[in-house]
Design a protein around this nucleic acid. Structure first.
Lengths: 197, 197
DNA sequence: AGCAAAAAGTTGACGGTGACAACTTTACTC
DNA sequence: GAGTAAAGTTGTCACCGTCAACTTTTTGCT
């Protein structure tokens, strides 16, 4: 028999199926049963690998954050050092626009009481990139706020705002009125590179 | 009979029930049948007033935008004129933190092909406030970008980013590390009032 | 006033979904 | 090789959105 009773790597297959569904059919079509069907497995099989649908979603979010981190790192590498934050932001927004449903899922409400080490670590990767590019940026610090909290909160809020509003189609009326979409650097020329500390 | 066969204002009652559910039980608990039950009506009654669940959601989003607009206008009124943008931003973020599930719903993906005049008008109200407070703000304009597109895109992205990341608990690690949450003005001191044009 | 039609609400059914229980098949270990 | 744990299957239940068929009330027309 070519078809084994045991799948061999069903967990990975289910995550891959989930990513496909998010890409091709959107968040509304994501379900445990649909993933199971894509993996060629019965509807209850996923329960051996995930703690219900929230477990599957945690795994998808973790994979999303890993790819998100990679997209930002790639963007950083594509720019000279004093413009690496621009590259990272482009990577950030580009990822969100390419995989809007996955991005939305990543930043959805955390279910109360649900904690997942894999997810924590993966999300920490994206967090770290934002910390990295905050270093050396010239953004006003006020008062006694330690480190560069202001800078990365600003960066992150800006990046997430642009990404999420774009995904949600909220800039549509702007684009319709202007005939084009302002570039990221046009909208936000406020960051300047101040050199390494 | 004290109980009329016809409800009288079922549409309004269903929207109110939906808002209650979003507040008390969260987005996951929102359903047509749950709203119908809260309104004391059979499970199929809502179909006479909404085009399925997407119609109910459109109505909830519209009501959300109206309240969102009101929150920003109230914030504006609570500050002197040269700080009205700060007040509006506080109103923006405050609304999102008070009604996180409603805010998320408002800015969720628009279903393709779904258009709703009531929703468009309501969302336009929030849009207009952001346009208003952009006027007179001193934010660098670059190149030939007309009006103050840069300023309001920046403002909106910032406000949405702060609000949505806060709702999503993403600043939790920051708050845990610092022991407190940086204030909106600390994070974003970049806007200055430049007086009326 | 009376009647027809439209509006509003009810009941019942269907398929899809998450969750769970009971069972079967495979793999691992001693 | 036997026993056990892991992995997958089938069946069931409750909940959901949607639709169809039906009932009750309101409205509007002559």
């Amino acid at each position: 028999m070519s078809r084994k009773y045991h799948h061999g790597d069903l967990r990975r297959a289910l995550v891959a199926a989930g990513l496909e569904i998010l890409r091709e059919e959107g968040l509304a079509a994501l379900s445990l049963r649909a993933c199971a069907a894509r993996a060629g497995v019965s509807h209850a099989a996923p329960r051996n690998h995930f703690d219900g649908v929230s477990g599957l979603i945690s795994a998808l979010r973790a994979e999303g954050f890993r790819r998100h981190t990679a997209a930002m790192r790639a963007g950083m590498a594509s720019e000279p050092h004093d413009r690496r934050h621009i590259g990272a932001l482009r990577g950030y927004v580009g990822f969100a626009m390419e995989q809007p449903d996955l991005y939305r899922l990543m930043f959805a409400h955390p279910m109360p009481g649900v904690s997942d080490d894999e997810l924590e670590i993966a999300a920490g990767g994206s967090f770290e990139v934002l910390m990295d590019i905050s270093e050396g940026l010239d953004w006003p610090k006020s008062g006694d706020v330690p480190c560069n909290v202001n800078t990365w909160m600003m960066l992150w809020s800006f990046a997430h705002g642009i990404a999420d509003l774009t995904i949600g189609g909220q800039f549509g009326k702007c684009e319709a009125a202007l005939g084009y979409m302002p570039d990221l650097e046009q909208v936000f020329p406020g960051f300047g590179y101040a050199g390494p500390r």
